[in-house]
Amino acid sequence: MSQIGPYVPLLLNGLLITLALTACGMALALVVAFTAGLARMSPRRLLRWPAGAFVEVFRGTSMLVQLFWLFFALPFFGIQLTPFAAGVLALGLNEGAYAAEIVRGSINSLPRGQHEAAAALSMSSAHKMRRILLPQAIPVMLPSFGNVLIDLLKNTSLVSLVTVADLTFRAQMVRSSTGATTAVFGTILVMYFVVSYLLSLGRGWLERRVAPDRIAPKRTGLAGAVQG
């Protein structure tokens, strides 16, 4: 371990890049998830079919291939992305495709009576979604979204293959300089685990904050929408 001591600041700088990738990728994944997930529930085929195709393509192909395509193939179409931008896009689009099914499944899992009562009150689809369905579905989504976030963190290591100087890329540099393969990769293994564990704790805290028994006094769902 003493061999890599002088390189710890370099690894910490790489960790900051990894955290930035995770934050930006998750922000994009959430936008993609709600956009594609809600579009897949639309009665309009012009929205439902493209959203379904997007989800199936990005879930059915390798994230690594998607990353290479965004970074190496897009320039042939006149679009040049920076390594960081290509990494964020690949992470956000791929994880967003998985999260879109979380959004769709969580909303569909709500009691059918919520939909029927909103229809009886002549609520528009947008009003029903905003005031009734989403406030109840989001707490259901949180555990799965937490898993997506941790999976996204681990997948950030792939962006080192397109020269993003993240934690894995810096570890490769240190290994090449010192030859301390076991120490270097053991160190970053612990670093990834610590960050994942902290994210899990944050997810648990957020779940407790928005648990149904805590938000019940705020009258979410149909009662809250009617009174609002």
Rank of each mutant, 00 (worst) to 15 (best):
A225L: 07
V162A: 01
L15A: 13
S125L: 13
G87H: 04
A100F: 08
F193N: 09
Q80M: 11
G186H: 05
I79C: 05
R130I: 05
G87T: 07
T168L: 11
M191G: 08
G14A: 07
M173F: 14
N108A: 14
R59Q: 04
G204H: 12
W69C: 10
A90F: 03
V210W: 12
R130G: 07
R219Y: 12
F34Y: 10
I188E: 04
Q114P: 06
L222T: 05
P139Y: 11
R130D: 13
A39M: 06
S144G: 08
R175A: 14
R104S: 11
I132G: 01
R219N: 14
R214K: 13
V103G: 04
F169I: 08
L152S: 07
I188R: 09
S42L: 06
F68R: 05
L64I: 04
A20M: 12
F84R: 06
P9G: 06
E101K: 07
E116F: 13
A23L: 14
V65P: 03
R44I: 07
K218H: 15
L91V: 04
R112Q: 15
V57H: 00
G60H: 07
L153E: 03
A100S: 14
L21E: 09
T61N: 04
L15M: 14
L152R: 02
D166C: 10
A223F: 12
A223P: 09
A90E: 07
V88A: 07
L16K: 10
